[in-house]
């Protein structure tokens, strides 16, 4: 009994093995065939059947067969490189402001624009057909669109603050003479007041002496600051230039998105629908549609 039960189990096991192996072989054959024919749609379907079923065929709950899909784990970089050709070509038309750099096989950095100064904006995930935007950079762009409603720029406040500071410093430099005159006047006054000091100094006299000392101290501090002001102004101008550069980059990005998508919301919508839009644009998808229709 036990034996025959075991045999039965052994029979089942080999059946399972055969079935699993056959699935794997089929999967690998299909991948091999699809690569040979450059049927990118088919490859995407094989690599993530669950998502394909959901987003393209609108069939929910199609689990992925991890057992077969893990077979290509060690060649995903090559598959990514293979699939990138058509994808980047497609993105070039739909997102004309993005540029890609393959920094290692199958891995792509995204640059926003080809203008004088541009930002690295994240990465392109070819196998999942999606942008992995850098959170910081994306946040700045989103903020830029929000601020545009108030006619403001990303760094406007910072620039205004530094510019005001530079105006103040320039004022210090410009009024060096006045300070000098004021100081000699105060020193004269202090001399007079001090001559009336001593043990019996009146409170009033004491107070005005202190005021004079404070005023002189303040002048001295201003003088001290004005000595380094020219350099500080220069340094600040450099900071303003780099903040302005960032503003300019963001305004170029904003312009590009408006030119292509009309609004930031439509840009985000396109990103969310990228997988389906792209799959449907592929030529083997169109062919498949035809054959489906014929059936």
């Amino acid at each position: 009994m036990a034996n025959s039960g075991h045999e039965q189990a052994a029979h089942d096991v080999s059946g399972i093995i055969n079935q699993r192996i056959s699935e794997k072989i089929t999967f690998l054959h299909q991948i091999e065939e699809a690569v040979k024919e450059h049927q990118d749609r088919k490859i995407y379907q094989l690599l993530d059947n669950q998502r394909y079923a959901k987003e393209i065929e609108h069939r929910e709950q199609q689990p992925n067969n991890q057992g077969v899909m893990s077979l290509v784990d060690d060649i995903t970089n090559y598959l990514s490189n293979f699939l990138s050709v058509n994808l980047i070509n497609y993105l070039g038309k739909k997102y004309p402001f993005f540029y890609y750099e393959e920094y290692e096989t199958g891995h792509y950095r995204i640059y926003f624009g080809n203008w004088w100064d541009r930002r690295q904006f994240g990465e392109l995930d070819v196998l999942n057909i999606r942008f992995l935007f850098n959170d910081d950079e994306y946040g700045k762009l989103k903020k830029t669109f929000e601020l545009a409603h108030d006619n403001k720029r990303f760094n406007s406040d910072k620039i205004d603050k530094i510019s005001a500071e530079n105006d103040r410093l320039q004022d210090l430099i410009d009024h060096q003479r006045e300070r000098e005159e004021k100081r000699s006047k105060l020193q004269e006054q202090l001399k007079n007041v001090s001559s009336r000091s001593g043990i019996w100094e009146s409170n009033k006299n004491k107070e005005s002496r202190q005021n004079l000392v404070d005023a002189l101290q303040k002048l001295e501090e201003e003088e001290e600051e004005s000595r380094t002001a020219a350099q500080t102004i220069k340094d600040n101008e450099q900071v303003v230039l780099s903040l302005s550069k960032e503003n300019t980059i963001l305004s170029y990005e904003q312009k590009s998105i408006l030119d292509t998508f009309g609004s930031f919301e439509d840009f985000e919508l396109a990103n969310r629908n990228l997988y389906a839009s792209y799959i449907k644009s592929l030529s083997d998808y169109q062919e498949k549609q035809v054959t489906d229709d014929e059936q």
Partner: peptide, 16 residues
């Protein structure tokens, strides 16, 4: 850089 920054207020763009 200075030219690049000035273009922000215009319809013109500076490319690399």
């Amino acid at each position: 850089d200075r030219l690049f920054v000035s273009t922000a207020e215009t319809d013109y763009m500076l490319f690399n």
